[in-house]
């Protein structure tokens, strides 16, 4: 695959990769950097890219793996200036008010899900993936995906209802 092909077949995936990375990592800046990382990984294996059935699936799997690595690293943080800066940025980003409290409530509800559940809801409800595609990215059985999706959707509903009840009590 040459640069021309790469630009027409791989590069257009940037928004999907970005959204997926942002869903997983929660930060814009880190997600932007991750998009570059994914492209670098794919460019390095450009000779073999034609052998893959779906470039999108490959890109999404790469994104998922890199995100999980980053999240794992976050659980055992190494003290450094960069981490502290990122931490401050995270707080700033979280503190930023959204257009609507109700919609940002959904984002918060989604962030309480496990990484796997968040991944599945994102791929299905935001990117509109079929179950077999989700199964390919997550490495789970289709049925397991379906069960996890249903559970995650119900969990979000539950959180939103509880939030609303809390608001009524306050008013």
């Amino acid at each position: 695959m040459n640069l021309q092909d790469f630009n027409t077949k791989v590069y257009p995936l940037k928004d999907k990769i970005f959204r997926f990375a942002k869903r997983m990592l929660g930060q814009t800046e880190e997600a932007e950097d991750l998009v570059q990382e994914v492209f670098i990984r794919m460019w390095k294996i450009r000779e073999k890219l034609d052998e893959y059935r779906s470039l999108e699936a490959l890109a999404m799997v790469t994104t998922k793996n890199l995100c999980l690595d980053k999240l794992k690293a976050r659980k055992f943080p190494v003290e450094s200036f960069n981490d502290q800066r990122q931490f401050i940025e995270t707080i700033a980003e979280e503190a930023r008010p959204d257009h609507s409290d109700l919609i940002s409530g959904v984002r918060e509800a989604m962030n309480t899900l496990t990484e796997q559940a968040r991944m599945i809801v994102h791929l299905r409800d935001i990117e509109g993936y079929e179950f077999d595609e989700i199964s390919e990215v997550t490495g789970m059985e289709e049925n397991a995906v379906r069960v996890a999706l249903s559970r995650a959707r119900k969990r979000i509903r539950e959180i939103l209802i509880n939030n609303k009840r809390y608001e009524y009590q306050r008013n």
């Binding site: 940037k14 928004d15 990769i17 970005f18 959204r19 942002k22 869903r23 932007e32 998009v35 609507s100 109700l102 919609i103 409530g105 959904v106 984002r107 409800d125 935001i126 990117e127 509109g128 979000i156 509903r157 939103l160």
Partner: peptide
């Protein structure tokens, strides 16, 4: 809110 959120999130671009 849920469905509006899902629609708006899909429009996010880099």
């Amino acid at each position: 809110p849920l469905f509006r959120f899902l629609i708006s999130e899909a429009k996010l671009t880099l």
